[in-house]
């Protein structure tokens, strides 16, 4: 309070400048990490890209061309990215025979390979739970079982992935409509629209959604070049992803990767609107159930027990 003259003298001007420059330097130093920012991620084209549903066919073609180039630059592989549309009269349903599943986790890793998930940090869409016989409560499941051989006679195995709910809580909560349900029942994500708030991840009762906490890493040789916009094209840091029933395969009539690799035929997939399809027959003939029916999500993923004679029947002595 000693010197309160309103005009700046030379000394106080010097002090003020020193403070200002020091402040600017500190600000610059605080922002310095941003110079390592991946600028390929911040192009004007990407900034102006429209929401999936608002893109015309030409818009989409341009975007696909651009993404193909980006992927090629990064992975040295020229991918073929398509925008596969849903088919009329098709609604996909999955059925899984818990009596047959042996918990070998081949579906988990086939999915990773097919859908270009990050290897480090690890992202997997399917979790296989080892459940003690005598309980169907998934809280009892062991996610981290390691044994030389499966199945263990005292357990059964329950793979869980996106249930493609008819009433999906994740779609409800997304503030920017970056995730929605398609006419064939698949809940998809526009990876270029997601803002990464992770509200959907909190909303999902099946813990099916995964977040890219950092830039995903995929070995160049392992990249699956057969891609589509809404499914397995490489994701970016900071967006959500999840199982989409391999829509780039299934919308072309093929089976999803997790099913193809299943060594015991526990996985069944098809069109529920076709009464002759395998899944229709299962729903008609077997006693199926869905996970967490009480949360009202109406999953399109059904579980059933069939044809498993446990150790009590086929014991060692027989």
């Amino acid at each position: 309070m000693s010197s309160s003259e309103p005009k700046l003298d030379r000394r106080s001007f010097f002090r003020a400048s020193l403070g200002a420059v020091g402040g600017l330097a500190a600000l610059a130093a605080a922002l310095e990490p941003l110079k390592d920012f991946d600028r390929s991620d911040l192009t004007l084209d990407q900034f102006l890209q429209k929401h999936y549903k608002e893109m015309s066919a030409e818009d989409m073609q341009k975007v696909l061309d651009r993404i193909e180039k980006e992927v090629e630059k990064r992975y040295d592989v020229r991918p073929e990215i398509k925008d596969v549309k849903p088919r009329d009269g098709v609604e996909f349903v999955y059925a899984l025979n818990l009596g047959a599943c042996i918990g070998c986790r081949r579906c988990v890793h086939a999915c990773v390979a097919e859908n270009n998930q990050s290897r480090d940090p690890e992202i997997q869409y399917i979790r296989v739970l080892e459940m003690p016989r005598g309980s169907i409560d998934i809280e009892e499941g062991n996610h981290h079982y390691e044994r030389p051989k499966v199945p263990s006679p005292d357990h059964f195995y329950m793979p869980i992935q996106c249930q493609q709910c008819e009433n999906p809580p994740c779609v409800k909560v997304c503030p920017v409509e970056a995730t929605w349900q398609e006419p064939d029942g698949l809940t998809v994500i526009d990876y270029d629209w997601c803002i990464g708030c992770r509200y959907c991840e909190a909303a999902c009762p099946y813990w099916a959604r995964r977040f890219n906490f950092t830039e995903p890493s995929i070995p160049k040789d392992d990249l699956n070049p057969n891609m589509s916009y809404l499914s397995n094209r490489p994701r970016k840091q900071g967006v959500m992803e999840k199982c989409h029933f391999c829509l780039h395969r299934t919308r072309e009539g093929r089976m999803p990767a997790c099913l193809e690799v299943c060594p015991v035929g526990a996985r069944k997939f098809g069109n529920i609107r076709d009464p002759e399809s395998e899944v229709s027959k299962i729903l008609k003939n077997k006693h199926v159930f869905v996970l967490k029916q009480e949360v009202g999500t109406h999953p399109r993923f059904f579980y059933y027990f069939d044809e498993d004679y446990g150790p009590a029947i086929h014991g060692e002595g027989r």
Binding site: L8, S12, F13, R15, A16, G19, A20, G23, L27
Partner: peptide, 10 residues
């Protein structure tokens, strides 16, 4: 920061 300090000196 720079705003704040620019006048502080005076």
């Amino acid at each position: 920061s720079q705003r704040k300090t620019s006048r502080n000196g005076s």
